[in-house]
Lab assay of single mutants.
Amino acid sequence: SKTSNTIRVFLPNKQRTVVNVRNGMSLHDCLMKALKVRG
């Protein structure tokens, strides 16, 4: 089974995003990807 960790990230202006960290990806990469999608 694939394991994925879901991390809630609290952003300024009362924004919130959820990042799924996959195996083999660093938290930083996942964060940058999530913020790019939002931006």
Rank of each mutant, 00 (worst) to 15 (best):
A34P: 10
N23H: 11
N5K: 12
T17A: 03
T3A: 15
V18E: 04
P12T: 02
L31P: 00
S4T: 15
R8S: 03
D29H: 13
N23T: 12
N23Y: 11
Q15H: 00
S4G: 11
V9A: 14
R16S: 03
L27M: 07
P12M: 06
N23C: 15
N5H: 10
K14I: 04
V9K: 06
N13I: 04
K14E: 09
Q15E: 14
V37G: 01
C30G: 07
V21A: 12
K14M: 10
P12S: 00
S26R: 08
S1H: 14
A34S: 11
L35A: 06
K36R: 12
H28D: 10
K2R: 11
S26I: 11
V18I: 10
K2G: 14
V9L: 03
V37E: 01
R38S: 02
C30I: 13
V21G: 09
S1R: 13
V21L: 07
D29G: 11
R22N: 14
M32R: 10
K36I: 08
H28R: 11
N5I: 05
N13C: 06
N13S: 08
G24D: 11
G24A: 14
F10L: 04
F10Y: 10
K2Q: 15
N23S: 12
V21I: 07
G39E: 03
L35V: 04
K2V: 10
V19I: 13
M25E: 08
R22G: 08
V19D: 00
V37L: 12
I7M: 07
T6P: 05
Q15R: 01
S1C: 15
M32K: 11
V18G: 01
K14T: 07
N5S: 15
S4R: 15
D29R: 09
R38H: 01
N13Y: 12
K33Q: 03
V21M: 03
V21F: 06
M25K: 15
T3N: 10
L35P: 00
C30Y: 03
T17I: 01
L31M: 07
F10S: 08
R22D: 03
M25I: 14
S26C: 11
N23D: 12
K36N: 14
N20E: 09
S4V: 06
C30F: 06
R8G: 03
T6R: 10
G39A: 07
S1N: 14
G39C: 08
K33E: 02
S1P: 15
P12Q: 02
K2E: 07
L31T: 06
T6S: 09
T6K: 04
R38Q: 06
R22H: 10
V37M: 09
N13H: 08
N20S: 09
G24S: 15
S1I: 13
P12L: 01
L11P: 00
K33G: 03
V9E: 00
V18A: 05
S1Q: 15
V19F: 11
S1G: 11
G24C: 13
K14S: 06
T17R: 06
N20Y: 09
I7P: 04
S1T: 13
L27R: 01
L27Q: 00
N13K: 07
G24V: 10
H28P: 01
R38P: 02
N5G: 06
S4I: 10
K14N: 12
K33L: 06
S26N: 08
G24Y: 06
K2N: 10
R16L: 04
S1A: 06
N20K: 15
V37A: 05
S26H: 06
H28S: 14
M32I: 10
T6L: 09
V19T: 13
V19A: 10
D29N: 13
V21E: 00
V18F: 02
R38C: 00
K36M: 12
N23K: 12
M32L: 12
F10H: 09
R22S: 07
K36Q: 08
K36E: 04
K33N: 02
R38L: 03
L35Q: 00
D29Y: 09
C30S: 13
T17P: 01
M25L: 15
L27V: 15
G24R: 13
T6V: 14
L31A: 06
V9T: 06
A34T: 03
R22C: 08
R16G: 03
G39S: 13
M32V: 11
N20D: 04
A34V: 02
F10V: 02
V18D: 00
K33R: 08
V19G: 01
D29A: 11
V9M: 01
V9G: 00
F10P: 06
L27P: 00
T3S: 09
L35M: 13
I7V: 08
L27K: 04
N5T: 13
S1L: 12
Q15L: 01
T17S: 14
N20H: 11
I7S: 01
Q15P: 01
M25T: 14
K33M: 06
K14W: 06
A34G: 10
K36T: 07
K33I: 00
R16H: 15
G39V: 04
P12A: 02
R8H: 04
D29E: 08
I7T: 02
G39R: 04
S26T: 14
M32S: 09
F10C: 03
V18T: 06
V18L: 03
R8P: 02
R16C: 04
N20T: 11
Q15K: 04
P12R: 02
T3P: 15
R38G: 02
K14Q: 07
L31R: 00
K2M: 13
I7N: 01
D29V: 09
S4C: 12
N13D: 08
R8C: 04
M25R: 13
H28C: 14
L31Q: 00
N5D: 08
V37W: 07
K14R: 08
K33T: 02
I7F: 08
V19L: 13
H28L: 12
V19E: 06
T6M: 13
T6A: 07
N13G: 05
N20I: 15
R22P: 13
N13T: 05
L35R: 00
H28Q: 14
K36D: 06
F10I: 02
R22L: 10
L11Q: 00
L31V: 07
V21S: 06
R16P: 01
H28Y: 11
R22F: 05
L11R: 01
F10T: 06
M25V: 15
S26D: 03
I7L: 12
L11M: 05
S4D: 15
S26G: 07
K36S: 09
S4N: 12
M32A: 09
K2T: 09
K33D: 04
I7D: 06
C30W: 02
N5V: 09
N23I: 09
G39D: 14
C30R: 02
T17F: 06
A34E: 04
R8L: 07
L11V: 02
N5Y: 08
H28N: 11
T17N: 03
R38Y: 06
T3I: 14
M32T: 12
